[in-house]
Simulated assay, not measured.
Amino acid sequence: MPQKSRMEEALSKYNLDITDEEVKEAVKTIIAEKVAENDTLEVKKFLMGSVELTTLKTTDSDESVLAFTERVNQFEEQYPNLPHVATICVYPRFAKVVSETLEIEGVEVACVSGSFPSSQALIEVKTIETGLAVKDGATEIDMVLSVGAFLSGDYETCIDEIQQIKEACGDAKLKVILETGCLKTAQNIKTASILAMYAGADYIKTSTGKLEPAATPEAAYVMCQAIKEYYDQTGIMIGFKPAGGLNSVMDALIYYTIVKEVLGEKWLTNQMFRMGTSRLANLLLSEVIGEEVKFF
């Protein structure tokens, strides 16, 4: 059977009969009834260990990325009783700088790849860029779904690209960014989530952070529902990463609560739940130690 037919068959096993309104109501209820109980020091410490410290600026340079990485090295020395960040996320050209500078065991080196953030490049370019990033030390790859192809109904191209980039990753984990703000509807977000997981994603991620709207609680809820249904169907645990627009500790607590309520405690590890942000690291650290700190 052609790939698209396989995808249609796979999608038929999932509940795609969802509306934006019911998602909004479900999220509203979770926030109103459940977030407050997670507003604790222990949860905030946990969230620090889920941060993917990210620098994806036009002005990034070898020197700035090296200094950025050194702060992570220094963190463990200065705050030995707190969890270190999960990941340093950079452009592929800086993979070598990070991998050669990073001294902290357990911190991953993530690279955005495959013509980030637009994904508008030939697949040969995407796979070569991915392979080079892994060769230079990337242990995780964040790619962007071909959103234009998805919205055109060309699921076959989307699946093929994810599979090829996954192959180029080798042993590195693959995160597929759905760019949920462009997908618009809950049904599209759920369909894209399922497609990405079936094609080989190890994580699904909300956004690049380069377009608005970026991560939203509603998109997170739908993606977590898809992860849960996929797990029920296959027994495979897929990680979740909100990214873009995480501006406050309350934002982090909301995403934590959604994961807890939809997916359960099993997903509340720094491996399965990640947050793509930089500003949040300082905000969480400030709340944990009880005074304003700008460490990172």
Results as ranks from 00 to 15, higher is better:
9 E>I: 05
10 A>E: 11
10 A>V: 13
11 L>T: 06
13 K>D: 07
15 N>E: 07
19 T>R: 07
20 D>E: 08
20 D>N: 13
23 V>N: 08
24 K>R: 13
25 E>L: 12
26 A>W: 08
27 V>G: 07
28 K>G: 05
38 N>V: 13
41 L>F: 13
41 L>S: 11
46 F>A: 09
52 E>A: 08
57 K>A: 05
58 T>E: 08
59 T>V: 08
60 D>N: 08
64 S>Q: 12
65 V>T: 14
68 F>R: 03
74 Q>N: 15
76 E>F: 01
90 V>P: 03
92 P>H: 07
92 P>E: 10
96 K>S: 15
98 V>Q: 11
105 E>G: 13
109 V>C: 12
111 C>N: 08
114 G>N: 04
115 S>E: 03
125 V>I: 14
137 G>A: 11
138 A>Q: 07
139 T>I: 12
141 I>V: 15
141 I>M: 06
144 V>Q: 00
147 V>N: 00
150 F>W: 03
154 D>C: 01
159 I>R: 00
166 K>A: 04
167 E>A: 14
171 D>T: 10
176 V>D: 02
178 L>Q: 01
183 L>V: 01
186 A>C: 03
190 K>H: 03
197 M>N: 02
197 M>Q: 01
198 Y>E: 13
199 A>S: 13
202 D>R: 06
205 K>A: 02
209 G>K: 02
212 E>L: 05
217 P>K: 04
217 P>Y: 02
218 E>D: 11
221 Y>G: 06
223 M>T: 00
228 K>S: 03
231 Y>D: 13
233 Q>L: 14
235 G>S: 14
242 P>A: 10
242 P>L: 09
243 A>R: 06
249 V>S: 12
250 M>D: 15
251 D>M: 10
254 I>K: 13
255 Y>R: 13
257 T>L: 11
258 I>D: 09
260 K>Y: 08
262 V>A: 02
264 G>W: 03
271 Q>V: 09
273 F>S: 04
277 T>V: 13
277 T>I: 12
284 L>G: 01
288 V>I: 15
